[in-house]
């Protein structure tokens, strides 16, 4: 007890002696710090809260109608009979067509920028251009597709028109992702191949591309999963909400899940809103599957690279 007291005395002497220094921190500053930290914390966790509320709401509204019959029926005026079959198959057709068209072109563009072009003026121009294209609103792509593919090329309101439009839309995403993957390929691999007298194209196609492939696939899948959710550009090019058949070729008319969801959600009746929620659950499930595949590939390949 005594000892403690003397210690305090010594301490207060010290503080008096050092009056000019700033030995004590004003309690207001501590309070401000604490408040700031708490505000940041609350704001941060609110994002989690928002996501949980969103998912809960969708699940609650959507669970009633989601079943096999829902996935295997065409749209109908009667809620109980309505389903998303046309949209589901339309989405599958559209995404596959988009992938087939876009992936080679996007990857080739990225390889050009990363391995050949960027230093030159044209490379620089393309680079700036790509980053600006990424910021163009999706609806503008819809108008481009409408004018060029639907009317000028006369592809009508076909899957092909839709795929070409979406292809242009996600091209910047694929290019950026592929460039990241190609950038991550160590130069030692390139130099090793050059040292054996390889030409540039041989280096690029036989050495760089295979190493970058896992990264490219991940990026491409993420871009495609973004394309699945796109609605506006497809409405612009005239994808229809009432389609009661499954497409059989890329020249067929089509609808996609998001348009079907939009159609249901924009009706006043409560039951159709629930139908829309069911459609959303199916749509998110499809996207989630694609994302899992991407994550799976990422994990698999990072493991391999570590070994």
């Amino acid at each position: 007890m005594m000892k403690e007291k003397t210690e305090i005395l010594i301490n207060s002497n010290q503080i008096e002696k050092k009056e000019k220094s700033f030995a004590t921190i004003h309690p207001g500053r501590r309070r401000a710090e604490k408040a700031f930290k708490w505000i940041s914390r609350i704001m941060t966790w609110s994002t989690v809260f928002i996501l949980l509320v969103l998912l809960y709401h969708l699940g609650k509204e959507g669970w009633e109608y989601i079943d096999w019959q829902f996935l295997d029926s065409y749209p109908s005026r009667k809620v109980a009979k309505a389903g998303i079959k046309a949209g589901l198959w339309g989405t599958v057709w559209l995404i596959i067509t988009t992938a087939v068209i876009t992936i080679p072109i996007g990857v080739a563009s990225a390889l050009f920028l990363e391995e050949y072009g960027v230093k030159g003026k044209i490379g620089k121009l393309i680079e700036i251009n790509v980053s600006n294209l990424a910021g163009v609103p999706s609806i503008v792509y819809g108008l481009l597709g409408l004018a060029v593919f639907v009317r000028w090329f006369n592809f009508e309101r076909s899957i092909l028109s839709g795929a070409l439009t979406l292809g242009l839309l996600i091209m910047p995403v694929i290019i950026v992702a592929t460039r990241e993957a190609v950038k991550a390929v160590p130069d030692s691999i390139r130099f090793g191949a050059y040292a054996l007298g390889a030409h540039k194209w041989q280096v690029v196609f036989y050495h760089v591309l295979p190493v970058a492939l896992p990264g490219i696939i991940t990026g491409v899948i993420l871009a495609l999963s973004r394309a699945i959710g796109e609605t506006a550009p497809l409405i612009i090019i005239g994808a229809l909400a009432y389609v009661s058949f499954v497409p059989e070729s890329v020249m067929d008319e089509f609808t996609v899940m998001p348009i079907q969801i939009y159609n249901w959600a924009s009706r006043p009746q409560e039951e159709f809103h629930q139908l829309a929620a069911s459609g959303i659950v199916a749509l998110l499930a499809l996207m989630l599957t694609l994302n899992f595949i991407a994550v799976f590939i990422r994990i698999k390949t990072t493991k391999r690279n570590i070994q």
Binding site: P104, I105, G106, A108, S109, L111, F112, L113, E115, Y116, G117, I122, L125, I126, N129, V130, N132, L133, V136, V140, Y141, L143, L144, A147, V148, L168, M171, P172, I175, H199, K200, W201, Q202, V204, F205
Partner: peptide, 27 residues
Amino acid sequence: MEILARTLLGSCAFLSILTTIGIILVL
């Protein structure tokens, strides 16, 4: 092959320029 590869990749990359031109022209 080198020339072919460069042209092929380059023309793909040029497509992004065409997209921009297309957007501006159409609009």
